[in-house]
């Protein structure tokens, strides 16, 4: 075991995959400046700074991926992906299908997002569900350094475009990473805590919120399954259904806004396939339909907190919504 931050885990995964496969390269605005170790080991052809032009960065990655390279691109903050949307969605996501399977796009897009740093709405916007809704793409949003390392390794080896969103607040958080950790397959949720009374489904930073809520619920005699989705597409439907079949109650927690968010999909999945197991309505705790504010108290109000999760679960088990 080694203690490392999410940022270090990302660098470690990049270094190992670049060592393993000479076709892996990384580029983006400041990549070669910030990841000096990679630049030193792999040289300027495989670790490149780029012009400030997200569209051409993503298009270049797609073109390179289709012709034999395995690019990783760092687009910095999630809202900047709006400039790269066409290349990610229309090119990398669709040209395999359009061409009848003539091309594949083994590329990884990295971007940061999330509240806690007061950077405001043009740096903080949890847009992961936009990409879940686009065919041909995979999306992961891990919560621990070990998962960042393992999922990034899997994403680099995957023959499809994979977007990995990193919550800014997690970037400097440290955790144990097994020294021999290998690729963690995309599409497998992780059960972080087990319980019988309620299922808390989450991903990224709010997994920690759910774990804190579960601690407090335990003191009140309520035990919770905390399921960390890790990967949003493919989605581990079996893990969700298995847990809800056991607990009969579901609360989905994420920072992205509610309407057509990942939580809506999870709730609909359970309504379609596990309706008979439900003992109470499904609840979602999410960010509001508002741009993320910079002001610290407003930004905190934007994010679902453990208090709210505890209250929601209490209402399902003992309160107004209890069966």
């Amino acid at each position: 075991m080694t203690q490392m931050t999410v940022n270090d885990a990302i660098s470690a995964a990049l270094a190992e995959e670049m060592r393993r496969d000479p076709s892996v390269l990384i580029f983006g605005e400041g990549v070669a400046t910030k990841r000096r170790d990679l630049l030193g080991e792999f040289g300027p052809a495989r670790v490149r700074n780029t012009p400030l032009a997200e569209g051409i960065i993503a298009g270049t990655a797609a073109g390179a991926a289709a012709t034999g390279l395995r690019p990783v691109i760092d687009l910095l903050f999630a809202p900047f992906l709006c400039y790269a949307m066409d290349e990610i969605v229309n090119s990398a996501g669709k040209l395999r299908y359009i061409s009848g399977g003539q091309f594949k796009f083994p590329m990884v897009v990295l971007a940061m997002t999330g509240a806690g740093w007061g950077v405001g709405a043009q740096h903080n916007h949890n847009i992961e569900s936009w990409f879940v809704h686009s065919p041909g793409l995979k999306v992961a949003m891990p919560s621990t350094p070990a998962d960042f390392k393992g999922l990034l390794k899997a994403a680099i080896r995957d023959d499809n475009p994979v977007l990995i969103f990193a919550d800014i607040a997690l970037g400097y958080s440290a955790g144990e990473v097994p020294d021999d950790i290998d690729a963690i397959p995309l599409g497998q949720a992780a059960l972080r805590r087990t319980g019988d009374d309620v299922t808390l489904v989450s991903y990224a930073k709010t997994v920690g919120t759910c774990l804190a809520a579960a601690d407090r619920l335990a003191e009140a005699g309520i035990s919770a399954d905390v399921l960390d989705l890790r990967s949003l597409k493919p989605l581990d439907e079996d893990a969700i259904l298995r847990s809800v079949a056991k607990t009969g109650r579901l609360v989905v927690v994420h920072e992205a806004s509610r309407l057509c968010g990942v939580g809506a999909e999870v709730a609909a999945l359970v309504a379609e396939k596990a309706f008979a197991s439900l003992r109470a309505p499904v609840l979602r705790l999410t960010g509001p339909d508002a741009p993320a504010p910079a002001s610290f108290p407003l930004e905190q109000a934007f994010v679902p907190h453990a208090d709210a999760v505890v209250a929601a679960v209490q209402s399902l088990v003992h309160g107004a919504l209890a069966a």
Partner: peptide, 9 residues
Amino acid sequence: ALATGVGLS
């Protein structure tokens, strides 16, 4: 936008 990637390869 794709040509630069093919050129890079």
